Computed example of a mutant assay.
Amino acid sequence: MIWLLLIFAALVAAPFVREHYRPKMSDGRRGSAPGQFAELSQGVTHFHQSGPPDGPLVVCVHGLTTPSFVWEPLAKGLNALGFRVLVYDLLGRGFSDRPEGVQDKAFFNTQLRDLLEHLEIDAPFHLIGYSMGGAVATGFAATYPVRVRRLVMIASAGMQIATTPMVRFIRDRGVAGQWLMLAAYPFILRRGIEAERAAPNAYHAICDGQKAQLEFAGFVPAVLASLRGILRHPMAGEHMTLHRNAVPLLAIWGAEDDVIPASAMGQLAQWNRDAVHEVIEDAGHALTYLQADEVLAHIAGFLPAPEGDDWGHDT
């Protein structure tokens, strides 16, 4: 009987032990990273700027599991149009630190606000968010509407909340949910990445970079912290605030997206009837890199052209 108890205890402890012994993100591991680093109030944030120094600023916020490299195709296109682009790794991902605690709207607002202060960016800028980054961008724009010129959401979270039994258990069941997240999520994410890699138009560099996130301590807990934080509730109040403050909003959807379905646009339209919607046919969730040209065309038609645009200069 004692052996059965020991085996059971080992099985229970295994996911926590495995997470504890994963390598930590450190200065040594950041040596190969492009861009720069900022020591902010919540820890180190990795960021990268590109494009003409005097171009209008576009800040891009990535999603739940894929760090800032997900923006590479779109950033190049925006640079070619004359925009200056700032991308950064959300805390818990990429080359940024992995602080503990719930990752709610205030958490993500603090990181972006600190980064802008570090870079001495005071002028209003355009803000683009992808997937969970759409919810992060929405939260920031609703809190600081005078700082955001135009908001673009790509396959954005914040309208509908995942309600599968597993997601509810992981989100709501404390330590038991944490155990299941640590035990099951790496397998689920790897399976999804390999399915994407097998697609005819796969972007292998993105798949490799996303899979590498699982090697480091703090990544899976960060995903859980976001599920229990900013992804826990719909962002009705924030979108109504954006509507009241007349922040121009473009929402881009993939017609075949099975992560955040295009039907979410109906909910957003109820909250903000002035939002502009564009649907890309035959597109899934990976819009920022598999449909970068089409997404860029919609963004270019929505943002003011850089020529003669003096709003993007810092003051």
Rank of each mutant, 00 (worst) to 15 (best):
residue 139 G to K: 04
residue 230 I to C: 04
residue 175 V to S: 07
residue 160 Q to D: 14
residue 86 L to M: 10
residue 64 L to A: 13
residue 177 G to Q: 01
residue 63 G to N: 12
residue 236 A to M: 13
residue 308 G to E: 10
residue 16 F to R: 08
residue 96 S to V: 05
residue 272 N to C: 05
residue 82 G to C: 03
residue 232 R to H: 10
residue 131 S to M: 07
residue 73 P to G: 08
residue 126 H to K: 06
residue 251 A to F: 04
residue 191 R to H: 11
residue 163 T to W: 00
residue 21 Y to D: 09
residue 169 F to I: 11
residue 245 N to L: 00
residue 90 L to F: 01
residue 190 R to G: 04
residue 88 Y to Q: 06
residue 214 L to I: 02
residue 183 A to Q: 12
residue 174 G to N: 09
residue 212 A to Y: 06
residue 251 A to V: 08
residue 172 D to L: 02
residue 125 F to C: 06
residue 47 F to R: 09
residue 282 D to F: 06
residue 137 A to L: 09
residue 25 M to D: 07
residue 7 I to A: 15
residue 10 A to G: 15
residue 94 G to W: 02
residue 72 E to C: 04
residue 100 E to T: 11
residue 275 A to F: 02
residue 182 L to G: 02
residue 90 L to Y: 03
residue 64 L to H: 06
residue 243 H to D: 07
residue 211 K to E: 15
residue 214 L to D: 07
residue 91 L to H: 12
residue 270 Q to L: 06
residue 263 S to C: 05
residue 27 D to A: 15
residue 139 G to Q: 09
residue 17 V to I: 15
residue 180 L to V: 14
residue 39 E to K: 10
residue 276 V to G: 09
residue 220 V to G: 10
residue 3 W to S: 13
residue 188 I to L: 15
residue 89 D to C: 04
residue 242 L to E: 02
residue 43 G to A: 03
residue 202 A to C: 07
residue 311 W to L: 13
residue 137 A to N: 10
residue 222 A to F: 01
residue 16 F to N: 06
residue 97 D to Y: 00
residue 281 E to A: 12
residue 248 P to N: 11
residue 120 E to N: 13
residue 158 G to Q: 11
residue 1 M to P: 13
residue 186 P to E: 04
residue 87 V to D: 07
residue 226 S to Y: 01
residue 193 I to Y: 07
residue 278 E to A: 11
residue 118 H to M: 04
residue 98 R to V: 12
residue 134 G to L: 07
residue 281 E to I: 00
residue 250 L to W: 03
residue 179 W to M: 05
residue 279 V to N: 12
residue 11 L to A: 15
residue 72 E to W: 04
residue 312 G to R: 05
residue 291 Q to K: 14
residue 208 D to Y: 01
residue 194 E to Y: 04
residue 60 C to Q: 14
residue 180 L to P: 07
residue 285 H to N: 11
residue 210 Q to C: 08
residue 27 D to P: 12
residue 32 S to E: 08
residue 78 L to K: 01
residue 178 Q to T: 13
residue 250 L to T: 07
residue 105 K to F: 00
residue 40 L to K: 05
residue 304 P to E: 08
residue 8 F to R: 12
residue 159 M to W: 14
residue 173 R to W: 05
residue 114 D to Y: 00
residue 278 E to I: 00
residue 5 L to F: 05
residue 243 H to F: 06
residue 276 V to S: 13
residue 296 L to M: 12
residue 238 E to K: 08
residue 44 V to C: 12
residue 58 V to S: 09
residue 254 G to T: 08
residue 145 P to I: 06
residue 304 P to T: 09
residue 67 P to Y: 03
residue 274 D to K: 13
residue 54 D to Y: 01
residue 308 G to W: 01
residue 13 A to N: 14
residue 24 K to Y: 04
residue 32 S to W: 01
residue 224 L to M: 11
residue 21 Y to M: 08
residue 102 V to F: 01
residue 30 R to D: 05
residue 310 D to T: 12
residue 124 P to K: 13
residue 42 Q to N: 10
residue 55 G to S: 10
residue 142 A to V: 04
residue 197 R to F: 01
residue 87 V to T: 14
residue 103 Q to N: 11
residue 239 H to R: 15
residue 179 W to N: 04
residue 276 V to I: 13
residue 96 S to T: 05
residue 57 L to A: 05
residue 267 Q to C: 02
residue 242 L to D: 01
residue 88 Y to S: 06
residue 55 G to P: 04
residue 202 A to I: 06
residue 94 G to F: 00
residue 98 R to N: 15
residue 198 A to V: 03
residue 128 I to V: 11
residue 127 L to E: 02
residue 71 W to I: 02
residue 136 V to A: 09
residue 161 I to S: 03
residue 102 V to S: 13
residue 206 I to R: 10
